[in-house]
């Protein structure tokens, strides 16, 4: 058991309470349809990017982290090698 756990042994309930408050606030606000919202966001963002570069759908990672005051949505898109990109741009001109 870590030192932190020794000190925090007294109460795990406050942690539980805070976790639930954050989770439920998000679930109630969005009626639970968060996955749908993120799916729509992802589609539209990818569509914009796809107008400029070819995006491999398997190389897109979406991460969400909900916290109390704000949430972060991370959309990670692996880009093709620079050379490929440059060639594609040149052919566009």
């Amino acid at each position: 058991m870590s030192l932190w756990q020794m000190f925090s042994r007294r109460g795990s309930a406050p942690v539980a309470r805070e976790r639930l408050q954050i989770l439920l606030a998000h679930e109630r606000a969005l009626g639970g349809g968060q996955g749908d919202l993120v799916a729509v966001l992802q589609e539209e963002i990818l569509a914009v990017i796809a107008r400029h570069i070819a995006v491999d759908r398997d190389k897109v990672q979406v991460k969400l982290d909900r916290s109390k005051d704000y949430s972060t949505l991370e959309i990670d898109i692996e880009m093709p090698p620079i050379a490929t990109l440059a060639a594609a741009r040149a052919s566009l001109r």
Binding site: R19, I22, L23, Q34, G35, V38, A39, V62, K63, L64, D65, R66, S67
Partner: peptide
Amino acid sequence: LVMGAERRVVFD
């Protein structure tokens, strides 16, 4: 919730 990943669920 039991795994502590509830804040990170995007898709299911």
